[in-house]
């Protein structure tokens, strides 16, 4: 019974094969409209939308609780649940104490910043060059080396931490920013090379060939032909690496000391030693989240792309 309808769509589409782009566009648009209509009718089934809204609320409530609590006076936090204090009173006292009180998070926030910037720039630069070599320079063992690099993506950091720690101690740089920068750079490379290589391979070889014919060397091709085209890829990986380093606990815990500790480590320690002091913990946790949240809301598109691409790291 449904055959005629299907046939007619197929017919329309073969007729379109002739090149009537506009008509095809119109057809597609009407289909999208149809589909959204059908989705709407599906969701007008009230309990389907109820479930969706319920999940969204469930997912959001824990974070709202943290946010509200961080603005409540210390005594109120201890005496009653945050849901009773939705109308105030509110204060920023917790943030002041968490930021600059004894053992305040201010210096650790600076540390996170100081750690993150080089830990993003260094692997991206090195990886861009390596990805270029793997994509556009012919040399012996290229395929083997690239596959090896690809495989290294999944090595759990745990297998590398202890020998590296010993090497840093021997060199006298353990607990300094240098050891953290180097570690993050090394750990970030395999994924960075893999991602950037994929993007470089998508660039039409004709572009590179044309530049070569014009007498451009590899360095010139890299900077003038490829780099401008790679901006979205660099942004996606850059954001991923930025958040990975900013949110990292394991590397920071292993390689830093009090002077170079990132904010995640400081807060994890606060949770262990002063677990009951929620006025400090909630404000502190929010201070550590503010940077990722800003990145998330301002660069959502790149952010999702980067996160998805990098999801196997670690």
């Amino acid at each position: 019974m449904s055959y005629p309808a299907i046939e007619s769509t197929t017919l329309v589409e073969t007729a379109d094969g002739g090149g009537d782009e506009r008509r095809r566009g119109r057809l597609r648009r009407s289909k999208i409209a149809e589909r959204s209509e059908s989705a709407a009718s599906r969701l007008s089934s009230p309990w389907a939308s109820a479930v969706a809204i319920l999940v969204a609320i469930l997912w959001t409530i824990p974070s709202v609780g943290l946010l509200v609590t961080s603005f409540r006076p210390e005594l109120d936090i201890r005496r009653s649940g945050w849901w009773t204090g939705l109308t105030g009173p509110f204060t920023v006292q917790n943030y002041e104490t968490a930021w600059s009180g004894s053992g305040g998070l201010g210096p650790f926030f600076v540390n996170s910043f100081v750690i993150t910037l080089p830990a993003v720039l260094i692997p991206i630069t090195i990886a861009l060059l390596a990805a270029y070599a793997f994509a556009w320079i012919d040399f012996k063992g290229r395929n083997f080396l690239f596959v090896a690099m690809f495989a290294l993506q999944v090595v759990p950091l745990q297998v590398a931490l202890v020998p590296l720690l010993k090497a840093y101690v021997d060199m006298g740089i353990n607990g300094t920013f240098w050891s953290v920068w180097i570690s993050h750079a090394m750990f970030g490379l395999p994924l960075a090379i893999f991602l950037l290589h994929n993007f470089m391979k998508d660039i039409p070889p004709a572009l590179v060939e044309a530049a070569r014919v014009d007498g451009a060397g590899h360095v010139k091709i890299f900077f003038q032909v490829l780099l401008p085209l790679l901006v979205p890829a660099i942004a996606a990986f850059g954001i991923f690496q930025f958040l990975w380093v900013w949110n990292d606990l394991l590397v920071g815990l292993t390689f830093t000391d009090t002077g170079s500790r990132p904010i995640t480590v400081a807060i994890a320690e606060l949770a262990g030693s002063r677990g009951g002091q929620w006025h400090l913990l909630t404000a502190g946790a929010f201070i550590s989240m503010i940077v990722p949240l800003v990145v998330f809301f301002s660069l959502q598109r790149y952010f999702v792309r980067g996160l998805l691409a990098g999801s196997v790291k670690g």
């Binding site: 974070s63 958040l243 606990l249 995640t264 990722p292 996160l307």
Partner: peptide, 9 residues
């Protein structure tokens, strides 16, 4: 959103 914040957070 939870993907964006640290696991510590």
């Amino acid at each position: 959103l939870p993907m964006a914040i640290s696991m510590v957070g």
